[in-house]
Every structure is written in C-alpha cells, then in structure tokens.
C-alpha cells in the first residue's frame, strides 16, 4: 500500500510515531514538520497548507487510531505527507470526506475537534490526495502540495539549519 518516494529525489524527510488519545502532545508533529520545512526555505504558502494537512492528520490518528505514523518528504516538486495507522479505519470514505460528517465522541467534541472538517480540510489543501481504509484495520493517507517551481534546494543548505 505504501509507496514512498525513491531516496535519491528526497531533500528532507522525517517519520514520527503517534499514539491514540494522546491529546497532550497534539500538534507537536505538525510543528516539527513546519519548522523543518521553514528551515529548508520552502515557500510560506506551501508551509501554510502543509501545516493544516499535518495537523488534521495528526488529530485524526490521535482521535481514532490506536497508533500510527506520519512521514513527510520534501521532493524537488512537492511536499508529501504520508500517514498510516492501525485502528478502527473508516467505514465509508465518501461520507467521511463530506464536511460535517463525524463519528467523534463527546470527549473529542468538547475539545473543539470532531466537527467533521478534518478530512475535508486535508483534501481542500492538498493538490493531490489519496486515502485507503480498511474498517477494523486502519487507514493510509497520502497528501501532496506542489511547489510549482517556487523552490530550489541548494547544495550548500544545511540539513540541520
């Protein structure tokens, strides 16, 4: 199911582990991804979209899965967010992609999540989006935001900048 990019074309990548129901650290992974891309000089408008996509992906894993991973890749022409989780999966993806549809319980809603905007937001901010889910097993999601020629990695850029 997972089709990671070939290593030769990757400028920057990271993989993060997430645990279900760990709302204390919610946002941490998105924040790290955002800062890494900023340090690499990726254009602001791309980072803004990726921040929303990464955050919603993170919240989805924390809210609905037992555990999962989020990976990101900076490629010559795009930034990719890839997520894979084990958990309840999604029964009806078409419905889950409709704004307002949510299976969130009250504890999630009380925190201001679970409004049925997560997946629609991810799709809205992605230039390319795919999602595969197996109920009872888990979900795989891949989202790309194109750089539209606005980014050129420099050889002398420091990975740890």
């Amino acid at each position: 199911m997972k089709k990671s990019p070939a290593p030769s074309e990757v400028y920057l990548e990271g993989v993060f582990q997430l645990r279900g129901r760990d709302f204390v650290d919610a946002g941490l992974v998105s924040s790290r991804i955002k800062n890494s891309l900023k340090n690499k000089g990726v254009p602001e408008d791309t980072i803004r979209k990726i921040a929303v996509i990464a955050f919603e992906t993170e919240i989805n894993i924390i809210s609905y899965a037992k555990e999962g991973t989020i990976s990101f890749y900076l490629l010559p022409d795009r930034v990719v967010i890839e997520a894979e989780d084990s958990g309840e999966g999604i029964e009806n993806i078409e419905m889950a992609l409709q704004e307002g549809f949510s299976t969130a319980d009250d504890s999630i809603r009380e925190m201001g999540f679970g409004a049925g905007m997560g997946l629609p937001n991810i799709r809205k901010f992605s230039d390319d989006f795919e999602i595969v889910s197996e109920p009872g097993r888990g979900t795989y999601l891949k989202s790309s935001v194109m750089l539209n020629g606005n980014y050129r990695a420099k050889d002398d850029q420091d990975d740890n900048a």
């Binding site: 946002g27 955050f55 201001g112 999540f113 905007m117 997560g118 937001n121």
Partner: peptide, 27 residues
C-alpha cells in the same frame, strides 16, 4: 472549532475563543 480556525485564520490574527484546553496553543 479548531479545524475551522486551522483552515481559515491567518498569521498575526488575534484569535477569540471560548476553548480553554491546551490544544488551542498548538493551533
């Protein structure tokens, strides 16, 4: 609604809300 704020607010906005838990800081 945190997803609404994530999708529609901008840099240098002041965010007015009734939410009090720590995830508002992440947003």
């Amino acid at each position: 609604l945190l997803s609404d704020v994530m999708a529609n607010s901008k840099e240098h906005d002041v965010w007015v809300t009734r939410q009090v838990h720590q995830n508002i800081v992440a947003v």
